[in-house]
Design a protein around this nucleic acid. Structure first.
Lengths: 87, 87
DNA sequence: TCTCATTTGTTCGTATGTATC
DNA sequence: AGATACATACGAACAAATGAG
């Protein structure tokens, strides 16, 4: 069992650490295709970071890696592997 | 007559200023036990704040001070003094 | 049962100010 | 100067619950 925590004082920015955690959950199938990613608020509470930081982590997965899509007023959802551009 | 206004630029957050205003109205009896607190929308309009800010003010009175209870789809109501935990 | 308005609940989008590194 | 991080605040959209009719 690997304990995944965030180190605010480490060399890697918090939002990138959180993005890595979520990326692992997605690629491992723990977060299934089509299912919603926890909200920015939830992620903030669960990982002890500000909403803006959680938001930035999701932005990485969405804008840079296309692992999720975001819908205003709804949330972000895991993109099925076959729908991901160059994967 | 004390004029109660909200100072958006002061050191105290707007939602706490509004919570203080409502708290005074409740403890002074101006807002009577059992009666509804103005809706989030109304408070927003009356005090010139966003609904989310009015909502946050009510959350303080409900979650931290137990001065009001909230019913989804209905509104928030003033808790009678004798029903308030440790008061 | 159905429709409608009102209200609370939740979420994202954006901006500002402050502080730190 | 720039990136990071937090708190606050406004706005918008969507959802769910309630009650009136």
């Amino acid at each position: 069992m690997i304990i995944v925590t965030i180190d605010p004082d480490g060399p890697v920015p918090v939002y990138r650490q959180l993005a890595a955690i979520l990326r692992d959950q997605i690629t491992s199938g723990q977060l299934e295709p089509g299912r919603p990613v926890p909200s920015e608020k939830q992620l903030g509470q669960e990982y002890g970071v500000a909403r803006g930081t959680a938001r930035k982590a999701i932005a990485v997965l969405r804008d840079d890696e296309h692992l999720v899509v975001t819908v205003t007023g709804r949330g972000s959802y895991v993109v099925p592997p076959e729908d991901r551009p160059d994967d």
